[in-house]
Design a protein around this nucleic acid. Structure first.
Lengths: 229, 229
DNA sequence: CAGAATCCCATTCGATACTG
DNA sequence: CAGTATCGAATGGGATTCTG
């Protein structure tokens, strides 16, 4: 187990302060975010974290491993690759990560045009999903974002999004990147207008449209931080 | 309005990344925590944040004001003191802060013997309160922690904790500091054993005991981050 | 007391080069 | 590809001083 680096930033018994000791360093929480949809390799992590250097990523992974949020796994010999994945406890951080995102997304200062990783997009779906809008709906969709594959399912007013394939999806979305899908879902841009981005859809148009409407945006505070009535 | 400092740490449309741009600097989130139970003065903030320097506190307050999480208020002339308080949006961060704390407190590495501010203690109550344990209960208590005053109320399976006084509480807890109360609530240390700490209780012993049992601890992951069965 | 201004050291980061 | 090693630059934060 790698050695823990700092250990004494704050001198505070508060659980939130302890959380910040663990995942409060720059980049740490975003690394956890990238791992939230399953184990990833070093290079895949870099791909989802624009601007992070190999040095910092290495340091953060060691730190997160040292505090048992991340564990390292050697894949079986044929392809003996190393994979980083969350521990059970690491996965338990999902709620906290989503609540932070939900909070910040309510600000008028949020810029949705920046780059977005596939994992972030899936996590945003898990965050923004509105169960009441899913009454009576049941379908499964396949999302192909670059080389990533995700299955999204809606049933019993519940939503799941996981890495994986599926044989007979009700609909399929193929996109070169995540932002194009985000624009369609959150920007209410019709799929046809996204042709130029290389995004295509197929399958049950009804189910697809239902899916696209399951994720309402809040945005309820103005630039001065006051609630908008 | 103060100028925003960095602005471009991450280049990421993810809401969580944006949250970290706003409150991800060292100390920032703990300052928000200290303000969560009401406006505070500069020195009061320092008191609740052991180890923070005046320089850093000044910088962080400017930064938080710049992004509209905190606002500055001049109290009316008689006592023309400056008070820092959260904007509506700042108060909306409570859920995220509590979820971070709840997550971290599940770790076996959490050290509850460190210093604890009164605001942190109240926030921990709001976090750990278990509605199902409050069925049929209704009472109001007064907590005097050093010079701070809080009113805690339980009714309709709901819990509130706010700064303030009350005339006829069902019980009163007087303590020189927050950790003594934390030991009684979370450490299951009987009040009598806390005499040496200067903690005293009075009023309806039944209501007091009910109150003390409303905040169960989770702690469900071992040192390696695995779920304990 | 509340905070701004200086100074200076320690850490951190990014870029580049290197290795199995 | 998956990191490690090194180095210079930038940043951050503590201590101190000063001011209203």
């Amino acid at each position: 187990m790698a050695t823990q680096k700092h250990g004494k930033w704050y001198d505070d018994a508060c659980g939130t302060a302890f959380a910040l000791e663990l995942i409060g360093e720059r980049w740490s929480l975003l690394i956890v975010r990238e791992l939230m949809l399953g184990g990833r390799r070093f290079g895949e992590l870099r791909g989802g974290l624009p601007g992070i250097s190999a040095k910092v990523l290495t340091e953060r992974l060691e730190s997160l491993e040292g505090v048992s949020v991340v564990k390292r796994r050697q894949l079986p010999p044929p392809a003996s690759v190393q994979v980083y994945e969350l521990t059970d406890w690491g996965y338990a951080a999902e709620t906290a990560i989503k609540e932070l995102g939900r909070w910040a997304a309510q600000s008028s200062g949020h810029d949705p045009t920046l780059p977005l990783s596939p994992a972030s997009l899936m996590l945003s779906f898990r965050t923004m999903f509105a169960p009441t809008l899913a009454e009576g709906l049941a379908f499964a969709g396949l999302l192909r974002i670059g080389t990533d594959r995700f299955v999204v399912r809606v049933a019993n007013e519940a939503f799941t999004a996981t890495r994986g394939e599926i044989d007979d999806p009700d609909f399929t979305i193929v996109s070169p990147d995540a932002p194009s899908i985000a624009a369609m879902v959150y920007g209410k841009v019709p799929a046809e207008a996204l042709g130029a981005t290389g995004l295509t859809t197929s399958g049950d148009a009804q189910a697809l449209q239902s899916f696209l409407n399951l994720f309402p945006l809040p945005k309820t505070f103005d630039a001065s931080g006051a609630a908008t009535t």
